[in-house]
Simulated assay, not measured.
Amino acid sequence: MFKKKRLAVAIIVFWILLAYIVAELAWWFIALEIQNRQMTTYRIMLLRPEDPGYNTRLEAIHKDEMKKTAEFIGEGSIFLLLILVGAIFVYREVRRQIRLQLQQQNFMMAVTHELKTPIAVTKLNLETLLKHRLDEQKQQKMIQAALQETNRLDHLATNILVASQLEGEYVQSKESLDLSDLATHLMQDYLHRFPERHWEQHIEPGCTLLGDAVLLQMLVNNLVENALKYSPREGTITVSLGRKGRAISLCVADQGQGIPDEEKKKIFGKFYRAGQETTRRTKGTGLGLYLCRKIAEDHHATLKVTDNSPVGSIFTVTFTA
């Protein structure tokens, strides 16, 4: 709340200063124009009507007055344009920095939550296993839950590490790989970890391309994890992979609430998550889809999101040969 008040005060001060500068510029023009007219009046008073060149000199004085007025208007317009352009640039940059700061703040809140929750769950499960003699079925259930939370931690740490590396000097090891095999193995893992969810997969064999196996695995994982987060438990998650001419298309469809049109371009931004971190219920850090976009760009692919029918979203990655 305090930061919002400071931001509001800063914006008000900015517009007041801008209005003051524009007012000073207008006053400068008015003062120069008054001075110009006074000089013109004074020069005309010095003329003698009986002088044979009176009309010519009078006309020259008026032309000189108009010339100076045009100069004042031209200089004032240039100054005003520069001031407005500079003000717009500063305002947009400040707003961008403020948005980035808020997104980073939300990111830190999300990371804190994402770290504490799996650690607390895993710790509780392990302490329960140590203190109590449980039957085999309950032991396996608690161990499976601890493993899932550990996988969440690993997924989070990997996302943060790769996001940092992709903006630095990450050295890709691109090679010819079978995307069909990679997607099939990942889907088998999800079927094993989340047997209660509804899955559909249509993976065409033999979809080979040149790419980084680690990054492409992360791309598929992040898209599927995103579908898991935003789909209801009774909803179906569909993963499709196939060729369309020389292109390879990977589609992950969910049956969640969908994404508003105004949010479709924003969701691929770094740290961006719709809503406020304090009221948002879904897990995440705002890095998953950002990494998907970066990985797709690094593999000369396009990533887009469209509406699913009747509800939900479809994320499509298209690799071109």
Rank of each mutant, 00 (worst) to 15 (best):
A213Q: 13
T306H: 00
H202F: 04
D307R: 07
L166A: 01
N308D: 10
L289H: 02
F271H: 10
I16D: 03
D154S: 15
M45F: 11
A31D: 15
G242D: 08
I259F: 06
A87M: 04
K4I: 06
G168D: 05
Y42G: 13
T69Q: 13
S173A: 06
Q255M: 07
L7M: 10
T320W: 06
L161C: 08
T320A: 13
M109Y: 06
L124R: 11
G86C: 07
L25R: 11
R233H: 10
P260C: 05
D135M: 02
V22L: 14
I203W: 04
K229I: 15
A19K: 01
T41R: 05
I83H: 12
L100W: 00
A253H: 04
Y170T: 09
F194E: 03
A8S: 14
L82N: 01
P205K: 02
H202N: 10
E167Q: 14
L287M: 04
T128D: 02
G245V: 09
F72N: 12
W28F: 13
K116H: 11
K283E: 13
F319E: 03
G235F: 01
R92A: 10
I98T: 00
Y42P: 00
G211W: 07
D298V: 09
N221H: 11
S176C: 10
A60E: 09
M109T: 01
F79A: 10
L177P: 04
R273S: 14
D212A: 06
F194W: 04
G288P: 14
E24P: 01
Q103P: 01
Q165D: 14
E24L: 07
S309R: 06
L84Y: 01
D154K: 15
T278K: 11
N151L: 05
H62Y: 06
A253Q: 15
T158Q: 12
G211M: 11
M39H: 04
A19F: 08
V22P: 00
A110S: 13
T40D: 07
I30S: 12
V305W: 00
L147P: 01
D212Q: 02
R280I: 07
L215A: 12
R243P: 11
L84N: 12
Q172S: 11
L18A: 12
G211P: 15
K141H: 02
L287K: 00
I295Q: 01
A247V: 02
A120L: 06
R95I: 10
L124M: 11
Y91Q: 01
Q97L: 10
I203H: 05
T278S: 13
N159W: 02
I237R: 01
L124I: 11
E75D: 13
N226D: 03
L223I: 04
I160C: 03
K131S: 15
V13P: 07
N308G: 14
Y20S: 13
E127I: 02
T41S: 10
I98W: 07
L130H: 09
D154A: 15
G168V: 00
F79Q: 10
K5G: 11
G235P: 02
H192A: 14
D261C: 09
Q172W: 00
S176F: 10
F319S: 02
L147Y: 03
T128P: 03
E277D: 07
K116V: 12
N221F: 09
E33C: 05
K270W: 04
V121N: 02
W28D: 14
D254C: 06
V111R: 09
V111D: 03
D261M: 06
